[in-house]
Amino acid sequence: MLDHTGFVVTDLAAARRFYEAIARPLGLLTVDNGDEAFLLGRSVDEYPYLWIGISRPSYWAEGSRAGLNQTHVAFVAKDEVAVDAFYEAALQAGGRDNGPPGPRDGVPNYYGAFVLDPDGNNIEACFRSKPAL
Rank of each mutant, 00 (worst) to 15 (best):
H4T: 11
H4I: 11
T5Y: 08
T5I: 13
V8Y: 04
V9W: 09
T10V: 03
A13D: 13
A14W: 02
R16W: 12
F18I: 04
I22Y: 09
A23E: 10
A23I: 15
G27Y: 07
G27L: 09
G27S: 09
E36P: 06
A37H: 11
F38E: 05
F38P: 05
L40F: 12
D45T: 12
E46R: 12
L50T: 11
I52C: 10
G53Y: 14
G53Q: 07
I54A: 14
P57Q: 04
P57F: 10
Y59T: 14
Y59V: 14
W60A: 12
A61F: 13
G63K: 00
L68S: 06
N69C: 04
T71S: 10
T71P: 00
T71F: 10
A74E: 06
A74M: 03
A74L: 04
A74D: 09
A77V: 04
V81T: 14
V83I: 12
D84S: 14
F86H: 08
Y87P: 02
Q92E: 11
G94T: 01
G95A: 08
R96K: 08
R96I: 04
R96N: 01
N98P: 02
G99Y: 00
G99P: 04
G102R: 02
G102C: 04
G102T: 01
P103M: 06
G106E: 05
G112T: 15
A113E: 02
F114G: 03
V115D: 02
D117F: 00
D117H: 00
P118T: 03
P118Y: 02
D119K: 11
N121Q: 03
N122I: 03
I123S: 00
I123G: 01
K130H: 02
